[in-house]
Design a protein around this nucleic acid. Sequence first.
DNA 1: GTGGTCTAGACCACG
DNA 2: GTGGTCTAGACCACT
Lengths: 125, 125, 125, 125
Amino acid sequence: MLHIDYRDGRPIYEQVADSFERMAICGALAPDSQLPSVRQLAMELSINPNTIQRAYGELEKRGVVYSVKGKGNFISADCVTLRERRLQELETEITVRAKEARELGADDQMLISWVIPTGIKEGKP
Amino acid sequence: MLHIDYRDGRPIYEQVADSFERMAICGALAPDSQLPSVRQLAMELSINPNTIQRAYGELEKRGVVYSVKGKGNFISADCVTLRERRLQELETEITVRAKEARELGADDQMLISWVIPTGIKEGKP
Amino acid sequence: MLHIDYRDGRPIYEQVADSFERMAICGALAPDSQLPSVRQLAMELSINPNTIQRAYGELEKRGVVYSVKGKGNFISADCVTLRERRLQELETEITVRAKEARELGADDQMLISWVIPTGIKEGKP
Amino acid sequence: MLHIDYRDGRPIYEQVADSFERMAICGALAPDSQLPSVRQLAMELSINPNTIQRAYGELEKRGVVYSVKGKGNFISADCVTLRERRLQELETEITVRAKEARELGADDQMLISWVIPTGIKEGKP
DNA sequence: GTGGTCTAGACCACG
DNA sequence: GTGGTCTAGACCACT
């Protein structure tokens, strides 16, 4: 269900949080659907419960999840909203880098080639 | 001359190294020009010499400077080479994010608008 | 388990790193197996933890280990990969020296006798 | 006459010593011929006299040069003797590495290909 | 308890 | 004076 890569430089809690956010974004987790409990998920992944707790806290901070005392953690927004939020993040990350690349001599054509997949551009069959 | 931000999450040695790399890339530091000595820069920035040492070590690992015992640290490569190296980094960073954005529904037009500083902006103003 | 020679010209952190790399190459350390913790190894060898830290950093730079915050350091690559890497290093070291020896008058036969452990030795016994 | 490369990791005094040894080996410097004075060479190369002094000391330690107080430094042996000495050094350096390579799986054919130049093997036109 | 970073102060090799 | 290494001790982020 969830994949942890210890070699990945990122901390575990971040990997867990990212996985859930990705699932929420793609619609695999509907709004108000409940996440696995901290203890249960910790056992499944053989991870310290503190780490799961922190991952859920991270998701709450990002606005992806809300927690109800004594009940559990739940997805807070629909996938469309989350998708837009993530797209805005990506936009700033890309524009910042595009700006730097432009200052280093990259021109329109080069930048466009970076964001448009090579080969087949239409269809996605 | 050099600015350190303690609130910046990045470690100090990395900030120092990045600053020098940026200066070398933009041509502000010519090849074979000498960098400030470890001790002197440490005093100017009120930083431990060990931290500067590490920053210079990082730059050497990146191929931006070379060090001569008893003489000092010097810029190793010309700005053109360094610029190409940095552009390749930016390319991968951008393509990875563009790929994710595309999976989230971004189309060519949207991605292109992110990398091209258009004077005309639709909506948002 | 690990041997440090203070008279050896090489820095301690390099000796430590080399020892672990050699063990990983010969298969004594399997991929994903955990290395001793920085503090523990420092105590065993009566060495400053900082030096061990640096040795592990060196190994990470070489691609021999990966580190996980709060967990420890682990072997990253299999012995076959590491072996090939080391063989390439040895190839360049040998070819460089063979070239110089050739310029000094060594012929094919002499060079071959150096790299092949012949039971029969002419003269010298 | 003599070439110093500051980017070369090796210390200056070693580079100077190596250059003279190479010249003595190839016969460019005859036995008992005088080397340039410490001060003069230091000026020519824009190097600290201490460094030249150390280079000459290194050469004396290697048995390539002998010094006469108040007179100067002189080549000690003929090129044939020096050549043999250097060849013995290269032999040990190569055999040690060949032994390690063999332990890592290199076979005769591989090792021979390392010490015999690719392409044309006869003639040296 | 783990690794990652930083500070403080010392010694050595090199020039 | 320079860089390179090592020690000692501290704090932080992560598990």
